[in-house]
């Protein structure tokens, strides 16, 4: 059963997203909305991690060897300035998108495994991840014309 690996993948991705939200928020503290919302969303990701913990532990007992190249890094530090902000938010979006799809797949697996507890966690968290993507998308769409055409 490979569910443990995908749970591990999501667990790690959520952790990394939390860290990235924190870093981007700090790096762009002169944009107060970015700063505050990123802080809030980082806390949300950390909570997702906490909720995943027991399932990661439980399923890892039944796990086979982890397949190769399961995880790929999407974030390698922040940038500055209007274009830098756009790129940083774009990175966060891709990371959130990875989590979003992972929630979907784990939700599918949880149904297959008849694991209602896990399904409940997926139900609670996947909407928040989707909203994170919506916020990132809204904010990028607002910033893009000024950053790419005007500045």
């Amino acid at each position: 059963m490979h569910l443990a690996h995908y749970l591990g993948l999501l667990h790690r991705s959520q952790n990394e997203l939390a860290g990235a939200f924190c870093e981007v928020g700090r790096a762009h503290a002169d944009e107060p909305d970015i700063h505050h919302v990123c802080e809030r969303l980082a806390a949300q990701c950390t909570e997702h991690v906490r909720l995943l913990d027991p399932f990661v532990r439980r399923y890892s007992e039944e796990a086979v060897d982890e397949p190769e190249r399961l995880h790929s890094a999407l974030f390698s530090g922040t940038r500055s300035g209007p274009i830098g902000l756009l790129r940083d938010l774009h990175d966060l979006y891709l990371m959130a998108a990875e989590c979003d799809m992972a929630w979907t797949l784990i939700g599918q697996a949880a149904q297959g495994a008849r694991d209602t507890g896990l399904l409940e966690v997926v139900g609670r968290c996947e909407g928040e991840t989707a909203t994170q993507m919506e916020w990132l998308s809204s904010r990028m769409k607002q910033a893009a014309p000024q950053a790419l055409v005007v500045a």
Binding site: L41, T131, E134
Partner: peptide
């Protein structure tokens, strides 16, 4: 909008 982030629907 989402009330917590302001994300547009």
């Amino acid at each position: 909008h989402d009330l917590l982030t302001g994300a547009g629907r």
